[in-house]
């Protein structure tokens, strides 16, 4: 009977190589040349990586909250996939930030030991999930915008960022496709689903404009060929949203943008009231055991 069962082998204490993924865990960018390109401000690059990393981390957090709540098992699998891709993107971007700012801090520092006001994600990703229609409208908006951004970032003067973006393009193409298919199904499904889909799209729309504001860091790094200017993404975004909403028999909303505070929004660390609860949940265990290793 010996060893026809993996459980039996657990107690065989040899060395750690039996773990499929090892226990001596490497940083996601281990072995990668993380030298800064000439003339690039490291602190600025780190701040930019945190913007894009925080978007991914918080969007993933909201998708994780769908787990065990999805309308069908196939969607449990799909939503978890997208959530996992985004955790992966966040990890790479946080690792890049830790190298760029010279602090050599690891990914978990940025996720678990920054305060609410230090997060730089757009407010779109932090709003509560609402119903499935709102979540799909939000994911369509997010993935369409992010795909356009990552596409352009593949030619960044920072080779590390360019490589992270190239990986993200493949993933985000699927995220956009998944969301677009649901928006079409719901928009052109039953009377009830069409009603909900329109409400979801209307509710997400005030958060769209913020995605295309250019932060001063994006401006300065954009000039150095490192960052993408988000104002240049709007035409592609509008074209995709037009196509999807026409196919889905939905109206594109014309609601006003959600105001910031004195013009400051997510990229400036000014978030919505609900964001503090996201951070409290995300960080609770890590902060209760600050000296622990996991």
């Amino acid at each position: 009977m010996a060893f026809d069962n993996a459980y039996e082998a657990l107690g065989e204490y040899t060395d750690d190589s039996r773990w499929a993924f090892g226990t001596g865990f490497d940083e996601p960018l281990a072995g990668v040349d993380t030298t800064l390109p000439a003339g690039v401000d490291g602190a600025g690059l780190a701040a930019y990586c945190l913007m894009l990393g925080d978007d991914a981390l918080i969007m993933s957090h909201r998708l994780q909250q769908w787990c065990t709540n999805a309308p069908e098992l196939e969607d449990e699998v799909a939503l978890a996939n997208i959530g996992l891709d985004l955790i992966g993107q966040a990890r790479l971007l946080f690792a890049r930030a830790g190298k760029a700012d010279g602090s050599d801090r690891g990914e978990d520092h940025y996720a678990f030991f920054r305060d609410e006001r230090e997060f730089r994600n757009v407010r779109l990703v932090e709003t509560p999930n609402g119903d499935f229609a709102y979540s799909m409208a939000r994911l369509l908006v997010f993935a369409t915008w992010r795909l356009a951004l990552l596409h352009r970032l593949t030619t960044s003067a920072d080779q590390v960022l360019a490589a992270i973006a190239a990986k993200g393009v493949k993933e985000t193409t699927y995220h956009r496709d998944y969301a677009a298919q649901w928006v079409v199904r719901l928009g052109d499904g039953t009377e009830e689903s069409a009603r909900r889909m329109q409400i979801g799209l209307d509710a997400v729309w005030p958060l769209v404009e913020e995605l295309f504001h250019r932060h001063e860091i994006e401006h300065s790094l954009g000039a150095a060929g490192v960052a993408v200017d988000p104002t240049g993404l709007r035409a592609e975004f509008d074209a995709v949203l037009d196509q999807v909403t026409v196919t889905a028999r939905l109206r594109l909303p014309e609601t006003a943008a959600l105001a910031g505070v004195s013009g400051r929004t997510g990229r400036d660390g000014v978030h919505t009231e609900t964001f503090g609860f996201v951070i409290a949940e995300l960080q609770s265990v890590a902060r209760a055991h600050p000296d622990a290793t996991w």
Binding site: V77, L84, H289, W294
Partner: peptide, 26 residues
């Protein structure tokens, strides 16, 4: 525990595991 997992690596492992369970159900 997915949203509260104390490291990003553990979060990814746990989310992938729970996803596998959905796959097994399927």
């Amino acid at each position: 525990w997915i949203t509260r997992a104390p490291s990003l690596r553990r979060k990814a492992i746990l989310l992938a595991k729970v996803q596998d369970e959905a796959g097994h159900g399927l």
